[in-house]
Write a protein that binds this DNA or RNA. Structure first.
Length: 329
DNA sequence: AAAATCAGCAACCGCAGTGAA
DNA sequence: TTTCACTGCGGTTGCTGATTT
């Protein structure tokens, strides 16, 4: 049995909304609200529209405080950061940009921001020296990973499913003329406690294994024996003990040096030490001839604070737990 | 000036998650 | 426990205006 259609498609209007339709819908919702039922709303309003269409029109265009027009550099930074961390979860990204809709951000990414990064990538490839894979660096990164989990405290015993995307761990690579040493870092609360110039991808399984082991050693309950249920920290405790808003700090940092600098700084950075197998293979293959535009290619373009994972994920733990697969107790 | 191509974006489609019955 | 209506989401389509040939 097929799914029942949400409306009678033959008797609903489609296509662009007229000003009259807009004002009808807006006036009704402002006066009565949606009533929690979009399907019956068009009938109440007197519109020959599908409920889903009404919902979309309201959310993307008519509701108050919608921001249209150019995106700021800061918004660009946030979108890039979050896309790198969580992928195309536009609703989550939109939640971090007041007044912007997921549809807006999705369109903006697909039509402009992606191209901007691709252009940078092309320039980077044109100037990148060829580098081999460095196993010592790999060991360093593994140690780095272990240290990360060793220094994290599981303050929120949320049961957690790993999101499907691979999670990027990246050490911060300040542009060369902006490097910050440890003491200065603590003083100005940037918390850039890593000085390595490596970026590391950890697969979902690697992260699960590490966190599960770590949590087991901390006597935290680990629900089940697979990665689908692990306990994670929902807080960010930098080494100086100050609980910080990592994303905000990152944005402050990028704003201080400019997105272009951050992107361009990778031109002088060897990205070939990525642990993820696919990236390893990519690195070992010829880099001079490929014209790939996949996100694997784009991703190394953006540098991140000590850990994107630790700075970004708390937002979702607090604001959008269901997207992280938090299980109901 | 006209046709072709491109870019931006609003809207649609179908799937998955959720919760009520 | 199962079914199903509803909602929300991400991917895709198609329209429109701008730009290029």
């Amino acid at each position: 049995m097929g799914r029942a259609p949400c409306c009678d498609k033959a008797n609903v209007k489609r296509g662009p909304w007229s000003p009259e339709e807009d004002s009808k819908l807006k006036a009704y919702i402002e006066q009565h609200g949606t009533g929690g039922n979009w399907i019956t709303l068009p009938q109440k309003v007197g519109l020959k529209r599908c409920g889903k269409s009404c919902r979309l029109r309201w959310l993307n265009y008519l509701r108050p405080n919608i921001k249209h027009g150019e995106f700021t550099d800061e918004e660009d930074n946030i979108i890039c950061s979050l896309y790198m961390s969580i992928g195309s979860r536009w609703s989550i990204i939109a939640a971090q940009l007041p007044g912007r809709t997921d549809n807006d951000i999705k369109n903006y990414w697909n039509t402009r921001l992606k191209k901007k990064l691709l252009l940078c990538n092309k320039q980077r490839k044109d100037h990148r020296p060829r580098n081999g894979y460095n196993h010592n660096k790999l060991e360093m990164m593994k140690e780095h990973e272990n240290n990360f989990f060793a220094t994290h405290q599981a303050i929120n015993n949320a049961y957690y499913s790993w999101p499907p995307q691979q999670i990027l761990f990246s050490t911060l690579i300040p542009p060369q003329n902006h490097r910050v040493d440890m003491a200065e870092s603590s003083a100005n609360s940037h918390n850039f406690q890593y000085s390595s110039t490596d970026q590391v991808y950890f697969s979902q399984d690697q992260l699960c294994e590490s966190s599960t082991n770590q949590l087991a050693s901390m006597n935290h309950p680990v629900n089940g024996d697979t990665c689908n249920s692990s306990v994670i920290s929902s807080g960010y405790y930098p080494s100086n003990g100050v609980i910080s808003n990592g994303l905000q700090e990152y944005n402050n940092y990028i704003n201080s040096v400019g997105l272009d600098d951050v992107l361009n700084s990778t031109s002088t950075t060897d990205h070939s030490q990525q642990v993820d197998k696919s990236v390893f293979e990519m690195v070992n293959s010829s880099t001079s001839q490929d014209q790939s535009t996949s996100w694997e290619e784009l991703s190394p373009l953006v540098n991140y604070p000590p850990s994107v994972f630790e700075t970004v994920s708390p937002y979702y733990v607090f604001e959008e737990p269901r997207y992280l697969g938090l299980l109901k107790q």
